[in-house]
Amino acid sequence: MSVLTRPVERAAAPAPPAPSKRRKRNRGYGFVIGALAPALVLHVIFVVSPYAQAFYLSLTDWNGVAGKANFVGFDNFERLAGDSLFLDAIKNNLLLLLLMPAATIAIGLFLATMIQRGGSDGRSGVRGARFYEIVFFFPQLLSVAIVAVLWGFAYNPNNGLINGVLRAIGLDGLARSWLAEPSLALFAVMAVMVWSGVGFYMVLFSAAIDGIPREIYEAALIDGASGWTTFWRITLPLLRDNVQVAFVYLGMVALDAFALVQIMTVGPGGPDGATEVMGLSLYRTAFEYGKFGYASAMGVALFFGTLVFALVALRGNKNRTELA
């Protein structure tokens, strides 16, 4: 009896607290779900759903105003492969991807190093570092539309700032129609992207350099290392993660570039396709040509391009340098 009853008693005895415990745990989940749900719902409605719709629309001939869309399979993607303007756009985006992030990161690193370690003793920043830090950050405060309009003025061949300065210092021969010459236009746009991005990455790198223990630099300097050597052997390896993240962000900017090109360039996208980018082709195809299906196919292509780039860029993360 006792053998039989004991377990029952035992089982019965701890029973009362169990429901409350479970309720407590449920309350915990309830809180987590309650906190996540609104964000998740918004994310699904405004991020996941448009993506899903774009994927679906890229397989149709939807014209943007019809209540129905006809399924056309992969026709849109086949057309993409033969669309010379879109291929120009891919080429230009790749050129931007190749040069713009590298230039921005190089200048950003240089400025950050100068601000943190550029002093004559190699231990502190150049004189007026705080001032430069703020000034270089200014472009970050301007919206991209304003940046584009301002640089449009600066590039004006007749009364723009750039040709004005060139003429004032007697370099009339270098004055150009910056945005109207096919060989210069894309570089003119690229320069603006670098200009507007450099300040942000300078601040990012500067903060990272600040986080590197000073003793490491002290030791290197005592060993007689030059500024150049400390940069290559200490600063750059320890900033690897930051540089990589910067590269991913800048790469995405390079694969986009829509706003600057749309506002600044001749055509826009010109002269003669010289500054065409994928985003601009997409926009024109959808909103000027009324081919939303085909434009969605461009968007899907851009999506996969960006995804592949991000994966490739983040792969190099394996051999990371850790601070001992």
Binding site: V48, A52, Q53, Y56, K68
Partner: peptide, 15 residues
């Protein structure tokens, strides 16, 4: 799984 359902909404208007 979700895509077809969500995708339907863009052109779900009645004509």
């Amino acid at each position: 799984l979700a895509a077809p359902g969500l995708a339907a909404c863009v052109t779900a208007g009645n004509n």
